Amino acid sequence: MSLNSVKNFVIPFTICLLGALALYPSPSLNPETYSTEGLELDYNISEEFAMMTQDYTIEQSLFTPHLGKSFEGFKEALAFKESRGNYFTVNTLGYLGKYQFGAETLKLIGIYTPNQFLYNPELQEKAFVANAERNKWVLRKDIKRFEGKKIAGVKITESGILAAAHLAGPGNVKKFLRSFGTNNLSDAYGSSVKYYMKKFSGYDTSTITPDKKARVTL
């Protein structure tokens, strides 16, 4: 059979076959009857390619809100320093949660059940605000006196004072300020009042209202 004859036969036959398939679709294309039974589904890709894909996906999908120097930014920056933002962590000294509260500090703001506190993120967030309100009241005169000045090479700001009070308590912040940096308490992990003053300076904590009797309520 010549090549032309083959072409004349095959081309019309192919057209007819495609037309027939279009008119009578295969049952396997029906989603109700589709099955993966018997198919080889165990595919692997190289580790290098997998890592490249993972990195690309993370880079493209990761979204981090820009909190800047807002109060939310202040909270999250301090929380990251304290616990990397983990609500459910307890450190080696027994400090609890995202902001690493001690049991005695919690009592001052009306929380007497540390276990309930540890497993309640909403309670932890309210505790942070209440503690900041109490500290701001205790330190209100020192904030007015020292804000904007430089002590031991650190520009004093309200947010720095409140962060240092969270670390070491308002009494030790007073000692630092009134000794002009000579009395610089450090915690068991080496973080000092001066370090917190500097690291957390310049945030907007104006929304915190000084409150001598700040308490947490759910």
Rank of each mutant, 00 (worst) to 15 (best):
K144L: 14
L162N: 02
S179L: 02
E158T: 04
A164I: 01
A164G: 01
S192T: 11
F146R: 00
A152I: 05
E147N: 12
K144N: 14
A132E: 13
D142V: 02
N135Y: 05
Y195E: 14
K141Q: 15
A130F: 01
L139R: 04
G153T: 03
Y189P: 12
S159L: 04
I143W: 01
S179A: 06
R145N: 15
R145Y: 15
S159W: 05
G190A: 06
F128I: 09
Y189D: 15
S192D: 05
S179N: 04
E158P: 03
A130G: 03
A164L: 00
N184H: 01
K150P: 03
K174Y: 14
F128K: 04
L177H: 06
E133S: 10
K144W: 13
Y189C: 08
N172G: 03
N135M: 00
K175Q: 11
L167D: 10
V138S: 10
I156V: 13
I151C: 06
P170A: 05
G160K: 00
F180V: 04
L177D: 10
K126H: 09
I156R: 01
S186K: 13
G171R: 10
D187S: 02
G153V: 02
K150N: 13
K174A: 14
T157A: 00
I143F: 03
V173R: 01
G148K: 08
K126P: 10
I151N: 06
F128Q: 11
K141Y: 15
N183I: 15
V138I: 15
A165E: 09
L162I: 08
V154T: 10
S159M: 09
K150Y: 14
W137C: 05
Y195C: 09
R140C: 13
L167R: 02
A188M: 11
A168N: 07
R140G: 11
N131E: 15
Y195A: 14
L139Q: 08
V154C: 08
K174D: 15
N184R: 00
F128P: 08
N172E: 05
T157I: 03
K141P: 12
V154L: 07
L162D: 08
A165P: 10
F128S: 05
G148F: 07
R134A: 10
G181E: 09
L139E: 08
G190H: 08
Y195N: 11
L185W: 11
K175G: 03
I151S: 06
V173K: 02
A165Y: 12
L162M: 05
K141T: 11
F180A: 06
G171Q: 12
A127S: 13
G190V: 04
N135R: 00
L167V: 05
A164Q: 01
A163F: 10
I151A: 06
I161A: 02
G181C: 09
E133V: 06
F128M: 12
T157Y: 01
E158F: 03
E147Q: 11
V129A: 09
K144T: 14
A130M: 02
A168S: 12
I143Y: 04
K174L: 14
A130R: 00
P170I: 02
I151T: 04
K126W: 09
V138G: 11
G171E: 07
A163S: 07
A164N: 01
